[in-house]
């Protein structure tokens, strides 16, 4: 993505402009859209999506993709809650799930970095595997409630910081931390190098394989965080979210925000912009009482347009396209 190109209409600018126009249009046309509570609601509604997009963004910048995020989000949290429901002390349950989540990240990384499986397939497989394992072995129901004993989770979900719901705060924290990590640490710079040119990064001595594992561990942990926040808000976690379009929404946020799927470009700013656009759009459509299925169709169409614009800005042809790059 030509974020760095100045003076031209980069995708980020287009999206930002679009968001502003949409915002203005809604503000003029829809009653109550501008109410402070509605604006907070917009932010809150995209927070979990945004947190997931932060994790996905880091992976995509490193020229990967993590399709197992939603599965990890739902299943890790469900497993944790199920253990707590069964009487496991919260700390122990958290420690076990932490180990499990890290293990999923490592498996993804091993498959992608060492077995050289394309990221889409590796993470598609682990998503299915993680869902199946937890669903069939550790929990008996689609939805797992937060146990009554864990009132601190409820309180966490209700907490507000400077009038902002905790989800929004967590999204901001996650985005900021990732921004710092990507901008000012060695790890972050290496992620960009790797995403820009994997072979060159490898040749110049960057430990690309451990880096890939690191990326997927981070995205798995971020996913788990998103799950915990969801559970805190809803007092339960429903594992059927794995079958929903949430994952596609996450990719939508990342792509539409302007992080090119070919890697090495974009940053947390793009994630925030993408999340805001989606939030504004969905909020307006809900106010208009548009059924969910129409919303999906509109979202998908917008994503498709974004992909087409992406391909126009970063053309690939028979000579430069990489073999097996699907």
């Amino acid at each position: 993505m030509s974020v760095l190109k100045s003076g031209t209409l980069s995708q980020e600018r287009i999206v930002f402009l679009f968001a502003v126009v949409l915002f203005a249009a809604y503000a003029l046309l829809l009653d109550g859209f501008l109410a402070p509570n509605n604006l907070v609601a917009i932010l809150r509604s995209v927070s979990v999506l945004g947190i997931l997009a932060v994790g996905m963004g880091i992976v995509v910048i490193g020229r990967g993709i993590d399709l197992s995020m939603v599965a990890v989000m739902a299943m890790a949290t469900a497993w944790q809650l199920a253990m707590m429901n069964a009487g496991t002390p919260p700390l122990l349950a958290t420690a076990i799930v932490f180990a499990g989540v890290v293990a999923v990240g490592i498996i993804n990384g091993l498959l992608i970095a060492y077995a050289e499986v394309p990221a889409v397939f590796a993470t598609l497989a682990t998503a299915s595997f993680v869902f199946g394992l937890v669903r069939s072995r550790f929990i008996v129901q689609d939805a797992v409630p937060v146990p009554p004993s864990a009132s601190f989770i409820l309180e966490f979900g209700q907490a507000r910081l400077a009038h902002m719901p905790i989800e929004v705060v967590m999204f901001a924290v996650a985005a900021f931390l990732s921004f710092v990590a990507l901008r000012f640490t060695k790890f972050g710079r290496y992620v960009y190098y790797m995403g820009d040119n994997y072979q060159a990064a490898r040749t110049m001595g960057i430990p690309v394989r451990p880096m890939i594992i690191g990326q997927y561990v981070v995205s798995a942990l971020v996913a788990w965080l998103a799950g915990l926040i969801t559970a805190a808000g809803l007092q339960s976690i429903n594992t059927r979210v794995v079958n929903s379009t949430l994952l596609y929404d996450v990719i939508l946020v990342v792509v539409i925000g302007g992080i090119g799927l070919s890697g090495g470009k974009g940053g947390m700013r793009n994630v925030v912009i993408g999340a805001l656009l989606i939030g504004i759009m969905l909020n307006g459509m809900t106010i208009l009482d548009l059924p969910n299925i129409y919303q999906n169709l509109i979202k998908a169409t917008i994503l498709l347009v974004a992909l087409i614009i992406d391909s126009r800005l970063n053309p690939r042809d028979e000579q430069v396209g990489q073999q097996g790059d699907i």
Partner: peptide, 8 residues
Amino acid sequence: GSNQLVLG
């Protein structure tokens, strides 16, 4: 879940 487990 068993299906997804094995399929994955």
